[in-house]
Amino acid sequence: MLTYFVVQSFRLTSKGAITPGEAVEVQDVEHALRLAEKLAASSAGVVAFSRTGDPSTGEFEDAVVLYANGVVPVLEPELAIAC
Rank of each mutant, 00 (worst) to 15 (best):
V7Y: 00
S9N: 05
S9K: 03
F10S: 03
R11V: 01
R11D: 14
R11T: 06
R11S: 13
L12M: 07
L12F: 10
L12P: 01
T13C: 12
T13A: 09
S14Y: 07
S14E: 15
S14D: 14
S14Q: 04
K15M: 07
K15I: 01
G16N: 06
A17Q: 10
A17T: 00
A17H: 03
A17L: 08
I18Q: 03
T19R: 14
G21D: 07
G21A: 09
G21F: 12
G21T: 03
G21L: 03
E22H: 01
E22V: 07
A23N: 11
V24Y: 04
E25R: 14
E25C: 00
E25A: 04
E25Q: 11
E25M: 07
E25I: 11
V26F: 05
V26I: 07
V26G: 07
Q27N: 14
D28N: 15
D28W: 08
E30S: 14
E30M: 13
E30R: 13
H31D: 14
A32F: 12
A32K: 05
L33I: 12
R34C: 14
L35C: 06
L35Q: 10
A36R: 01
A36T: 00
E37Q: 15
E37Y: 03
K38L: 11
K38V: 06
L39G: 01
L39V: 10
L39A: 08
A40R: 02
A40D: 05
A41M: 11
A41E: 15
A41R: 13
S42Q: 12
S42N: 09
S43W: 00
S43C: 07
A44D: 03
G45H: 07
V46W: 02
V46I: 12
V47H: 01
V47R: 01
A48D: 05
A48Y: 00
A48V: 06
A48K: 01
F49K: 04
S50K: 13
R51W: 04
R51E: 12
T52W: 04
T52Y: 02
T52E: 11
G53N: 01
D54H: 11
P55H: 10
P55V: 12
P55I: 10
S56M: 04
S56G: 01
S56P: 00
S56H: 08
S56C: 05
T57K: 10
E59A: 15
E59M: 12
E59V: 15
E59D: 09
F60G: 08
F60L: 06
D62I: 01
D62W: 00
D62K: 13
A63M: 08
A63G: 07
A63V: 14
A63K: 04
V65L: 05
V65A: 08
V65D: 04
V65H: 07
L66F: 15
L66P: 02
Y67F: 15
N69M: 05
N69K: 12
N69E: 14
G70M: 03
G70E: 04
V71C: 04
V71F: 10
V71Q: 11
V72S: 09
V72F: 02
P73V: 11
P73S: 10
V74P: 02
L75K: 08
E76N: 15
P77L: 11
P77K: 09
P77G: 06
E78M: 13
E78W: 09
L79A: 15
L79E: 13
A80F: 04
A80Y: 04
A80W: 05
A80Q: 13
I81F: 02
I81R: 06
A82W: 09
C83Y: 09
C83F: 02
C83P: 03
